[in-house]
Amino acid sequence: MKVLIATDKPFAKVAVDGIRKEIEAAGYELALLEKYTEKAQLLDAVKDANAIIIRSDIIDAEVLDAAKELKIVVRAGAGYDNVDLEAATAHNVCVMNTPGQNSNAVAELAFGMMVMAVRNMYNGTSGTELKGKKLGIHAYGNVGRNVARIAKGFGMEIFAFDAFCPKEVIEKDGVKAVDSADELYSTCNVVSLHIPATAETKNSINYALVNKMPKGGVLVNTARKEVINETELIQLMEERADLKYMTDIMPAANETFAAKFVGRYFSTPKKMGAQTAEANINAGIAAAQQIVGFLKDGCEKFRVNKK
């Protein structure tokens, strides 16, 4: 069996070493495709792969067509919208993610952005504190729970909305569950986004919703670019000079945001939520372990596509 690591943004060496140890201990071969610059390189590398570990790399129907021996793809991370799930199912390929492995890293970055925002981008002027402020967590999954844990240390009042998470699960963590996104945004000084990009959520963070935030509101996005209605958020921020937007996913309209909202907008140059040594290692090794479990025992615990 051949396992391919295909990463245009490579894992750290220590992560690759950990993956190799897991794969070779199971008696499988490990192959590396790192920092590739053309899709043709990926298409060639997958031809004889039985399993693939990826990060933000695109696995579409063309890649799956080329990978005649492929049985499983594991996305080292939580989000998996870079994989065509329907095409994978059609090719009888199992797709998994590694939920929870990057969660603390993303949550810490969200707080780094919150502090940066309330301290006016460290421009030397007097800012405000997070202590005592109301924090809204939009989606209470693995990252959201880590955000709540950290927020307690800051002394924030914590609220969360998640249409798919029972209220009692949220409230047992000492977090106040609200009934709607409207209520969350109306209530909170800071909102941290953790929703996936789905048909329902794309462009859902719009003028009407964000405009409900109190004066001085801060919106932090470490989730997905597609959930933001950029045109409407630009319009709102033009009308409301008190709002700030901090994002780990550079908007399509980044130049417009940066030019119009100096001191109120920040984007990382590339998605950095999971870019820590610890998350890198954790997600990579988890991916390797899941592949071994699937190939040896048929374990599909973290499968995200249909059979």
Score class of each variant (00 low, 15 high):
Lys271Val: 14
Val95Arg: 02
Ile54Arg: 00
Glu86Lys: 15
Ser267Ile: 03
Gly100Phe: 05
Lys9Ser: 06
Leu109Cys: 08
Phe111Ala: 06
Gly273Arg: 03
Lys296Arg: 12
Ala49Thr: 04
Ala51Pro: 02
Glu86Leu: 12
Ile158Asn: 03
Asn142Arg: 15
Ile205Met: 14
Thr247Lys: 10
Met250Pro: 11
Ala26Arg: 04
Ala12Gly: 09
Ala15Glu: 01
Lys306Leu: 11
Met96Cys: 11
Leu193Pro: 01
Val46Phe: 01
Asn206Leu: 09
Lys172Thr: 12
Gly136Trp: 01
Leu85Asn: 01
Asn123Leu: 07
Asn97His: 09
Leu236Trp: 01
Ala66Leu: 06
Ser103Asn: 12
Ala45Gln: 00
Ile234Trp: 03
Pro166Tyr: 04
Asn305Ser: 06
Ile150Asp: 07
Arg264Ser: 11
Met246Val: 00
Ala61Phe: 07
Asn229Tyr: 05
Ile59His: 05
Ile72Asp: 00
Lys39Ile: 05
Gly216Glu: 08
Asn120Ser: 11
Lys133Glu: 07
Val115Tyr: 04
Phe294Ala: 06
Arg224Asn: 09
Lys35Asn: 15
Gly18Val: 02
Ile54His: 03
Ala110His: 04
Lys270Pro: 02
His91Ala: 13
Met250His: 09
Asp8Trp: 15
Glu278Thr: 14
Ala279Glu: 04
Lys21Pro: 02
Glu200Val: 11
Gly174Thr: 07
Asn97Ala: 05
Val220Cys: 08
Asn211Ser: 15
Lys68Thr: 12
Lys301Ser: 10
Arg119Ser: 05
Ala76Tyr: 02
Ile52His: 03
Asp297Gln: 10
Glu38Thr: 12
Glu255Cys: 10
Arg55Gly: 08
Asn104Thr: 14
Asp48Gln: 08
Ile23Glu: 00
Tyr245Cys: 01
Ala288Thr: 07
Asp248Lys: 00
Glu255Phe: 14
Val292Phe: 01
Ala110Ser: 14
Glu29Asp: 14
Ala15Tyr: 01
Met213Cys: 09
Gly27His: 13
Ala76Asn: 07
Ser103Ala: 15
Glu29His: 11
Lys306Thr: 13
Ala163Leu: 14
Thr201Tyr: 05
Ile52Arg: 03
Ile234Cys: 07
Lys225Gly: 12
Ser186Gln: 13
Phe161Asn: 05
Val210Met: 11
Gly132Phe: 07
Gln41Thr: 04
His138Gly: 05
Thr231Trp: 03
Tyr207Lys: 13
Cys94Tyr: 12
Thr125Asn: 12
Ile228Gly: 01
Arg119Gly: 01
Gly273His: 05
Gln290Phe: 09
Leu30Gly: 06
Ser180Cys: 10
Ser103Met: 03
Met272Cys: 12
Pro99His: 15
Leu85Ala: 01
Met250Phe: 09
Val210Phe: 12
Ala241Asp: 14
Arg55Gln: 13
Val218Gly: 06
Val169Leu: 11
Ala148Asn: 09
His138Lys: 06
Thr256Phe: 05
Tyr207His: 15
Lys134His: 13
Asn50Arg: 10
Met113Asn: 02
Val227Leu: 10
Leu184Val: 09
Met116His: 15
Lys47Gln: 15
Gly136Arg: 00
Ala283His: 04
Glu24Ile: 10
Ala181Gln: 10
Val63Arg: 04
Glu157Asn: 13
Arg119Phe: 04
Glu108Ala: 11
Val227Glu: 06
Val210Gln: 05
Lys212Ala: 13
Thr198Leu: 14
Val3Glu: 04
Ile228Leu: 10
Glu168Met: 14
Phe164Lys: 13
Tyr80Trp: 03
